[in-house]
Design a protein around this nucleic acid. Sequence first.
RNA 1: GUGCCCGUAGCUCAAUCGGCAGAGCACUGGUCUGUGGAACCAGGGGUUGCGGGUUCGAGCCCCGCCGGGCACCCCA
Length: 439
Amino acid sequence: MARAPQVLRGMRDFLPEQMLLRQHVLNSFREVFERYGFEPIETPVIEYLETLTGKYGEDEKLIYSFQDRGERDVGLRYDLTVPLARFVANHRNELNFPFKRYHIAPVFRADRPQRGRYREFWQCDADIVGTKSMMADAEVVSVWIDALSAINMPGFVVHINHRKLLMSLAEVAGVPNEQTSTIHRAIDKLAKIGEDGVISEMVSNDIPEDAARRVLDLVSTRGEPGHVFEQLVDRLQGNTLAEEGLTELRSLFGYLESMGADPAHYTLDLTLARGLDYYTGPVFEALSVDANIGSLGGAGRYDGLVGMFSGEDLPATGCSLGLERIFDVIQERNLVGVPPTVSQTMVTIFNEETVGDSLSLVGELRRAGISCEIYVGERWDLRRQLQYANRKGIPTTVILGPDEIKRGEVILREMETGEQSTLARSDLLGVLQARSAHA
RNA sequence: GUGCCCGUAGCUCAAUCGGCAGAGCACUGGUCUGUGGAACCAGGGGUUGCGGGUUCGAGCCCCGCCGGGCACCCCA
């Protein structure tokens, strides 16, 4: 047998059964996004390379880039946020602000693949451009919670922090600003490597131990958000950056509470340090404590990004869910039941004399809106046809032979039980429609 | 991008020290010309991921590439 080529590293194929599950998830997300007034857009997969560069910091090395036929330097989009900023800059006179859009599409990263980490994966983004109001950030968190709830994602929590608090940490520690990202890297690993690990990570990067302890002590503040805010206000007094961040977080949490967002699904996490360069305000990360698959989504406010393209500053905030990780979790755990096939029924063929009757029946059913197959294989023994239906998971078959045709009847077979009933051909459509209404 | 583990039939795996490439499941056909899942019988299917090297001889040893996984980096 000839060897088929493999797919590219980090990319994968999806079988029909998997696609039906993916589409179910996507439809759920779409529904939730639209419930909040987000509307769909689409942008090209490929952008000019310069559109993508200079936005992601160190991650920039993971951009898939190449030259096209005209020797233009181009790149596959790395996320949907930078293309959105470019989109808004291009169309700002045609948009109604605050602009709310969702975008569900594949993105590409030239990363080394692992479980839950692919080179091509789908992101599901909802963003609001053109308002600094924390209400927009609250909507983003809330839409996330609703989206993940809609697909029964187990044990997920949206962790919330603020970029301005993070930026103030170097000042708190009394170390140079260049050390800020070192501090972020260290505290972000707290849950993974523990307090001692965090301290030694900072110390080994030339941060004095007492400074490291001050930082750790500060970000370890836990408890009811209200109390934490009070403590932080005291301890960070005089630090303008931190005070701004705290003020914003307080109103964000206030809005969330008023909206009735389930507090089990969001939490203040001062150790959350999102890496992307363009974040400027609240930052969010969706994690599942149950599923060991890393982050389900990342989000945050990026007030400067649109301005990088248009000169006109437009504040923005938004969220991004990674479909592949979500899909892997619900597939592994069987969390969402989706029928294995789109076909509701299949009409069988008896022989050359009756094939016309089978075809006209299937045509009628299709015109009436029933998803209906006829067996298109070459050999028409009933055994083969039932086996096909069985393997595909088609719930019923319609058996139509000379006897039935003569009497104006059909046999409706339940594939699960093998139960059969004879009914008038004219009643078949009604019966099938009733069944699909129940499903 | 760095380090490590792995790759044998569609799937899961076996093959002693380097010595004739196998099994179960799946698939195809039949038992069964108006009834799927079960049983029984038979059959097809492999350049052992790809390419090179060492050797009388390589699935096994060495090198490169492709692909999978883990850790790091980072991330959805």
